[in-house]
């Protein structure tokens, strides 16, 4: 009984981790079709913001994580949207090369400032007991944050005018322009929001992991696989894909080995994309966000 309970928590935590990693990419790649290879580095920046704020300036961990990290990384995203990305909309392969360069640049800058040294913040809130098992409280907090973040995204996109404008512009910039919307500005803001969500994810995951300039590579592939498998309706798709992958990986990791967990995650992705070449939401929930 305890074992089943703890496994359910692990599965939820696996799903939440993937969904969190995918949120920002669902905006930047899913909605805007920019292949952002610097996604992992935006997450890495979020982690560094938490470390610098808490260690150098003594700022409260939660404020650093939930407020300062997304704002900072959002601004970084805004700057690079202006000087780099905005010239490349609609040129998907070129965005891949450009953001790859951006990723190397960010790794270089952070290594130059902080050194290639592993840093980290201790996981807050301690542990709780679940029958025979002991687990960290922070896992539950992370799951809760993920749920709140996705609820917020759905509400903004489906229920506000801002969300309507963003979705409309992504679907048909010319038509949106005719209706008095300025597509470049909408693109700029949307990219910054995507970057902010990515920074937030990196910050929330920082107390669970370590932060090192090259940590991005641990995140980027998983985020892409999740969002691509999700398909056209980026957010619903990312949630569905996270659900499938998180469950497969955690259960297999638990029953057999973590390597098989990774292998089965990829096999599942291949099978899903074979059945649904345009992603899960290419077939189901097509009208969702």
């Amino acid at each position: 009984m305890d074992l089943i309970g703890i496994q359910i928590i692990q599965v939820l935590s696996g799903i939440a981790t993937l969904a969190l990693m995918g949120a920002g990419l669902a905006v930047i790649f899913g909605m805007m079709r920019v292949i952002n290879f610097a996604h992992g580095e935006f997450m890495m920046l979020g982690g560094y913001v938490v470390i610098v704020c808490t260690e150098q300036f003594g700022i409260n961990l939660w404020i650093a994580m939930l407020i300062i990290a997304p704002i900072f990384v959002g601004l970084v995203g805004l700057v690079f949207e202006r000087i780099l990305i905005r010239f490349l909309y609609g040129r998907m392969i070129d965005t891949l090369i450009a953001t790859w360069g951006l990723s190397l640049f960010l790794i270089g800058v952070v290594t130059w400032i902080f050194g290639n040294v592993t840093r980290g913040v201790q996981t807050p809130l301690g542990a709780y007991s679940f029958g025979d098992y002991s687990e960290k409280v922070y896992t539950l907090v992370m799951i809760a944050f993920t749920v709140v973040i996705y609820l917020a995204i759905f509400i903004v996109l489906r229920r506000t005018k801002l969300g309507l404008i963003a979705r409309g512009t992504m679907q048909n910039p010319n038509q949106a322009s005719c209706l008095g919307v300025s597509p470049p500005r909408v693109y700029m803001v949307t990219f910054a929001v995507g970057a902010a969500l990515t920074g937030l994810a990196g910050a929330i995951l920082a107390p669970l992991n370590t932060v090192i300039p090259t940590i991005g590579v641990s995140y980027v592939a998983q985020a892409f696989i999740t969002v691509i498998t999700g398909g056209a309706a980026a957010f619903t798709g990312t949630v569905l894909a996270s659900g499938v992958f998180g469950t497969v990986r955690q259960v297999i990791s638990f029953e057999w080995t973590p390597i098989l967990g990774q292998v089965f995650l990829l096999i599942t992705a291949v099978i899903l994309l074979r059945i649904f070449p345009t992603g899960i939401t290419g077939r189901f929930f097509r009208r969702s966000t």
């Binding site: 703890i6 692990q10 025979d132 687990e135 896992t139 669970l208 940590i215 641990s218 955690q250």
Partner: peptide, 29 residues
Amino acid sequence: VTEFGPEISKIQAAKPDFLYTCLVGGAHI
């Protein structure tokens, strides 16, 4: 790999007297 949650539960289920590690690199910290 940076996510060790399932493994930590698994170790608890196996109830070893001690754990012997040979992890390597930044992610494994």
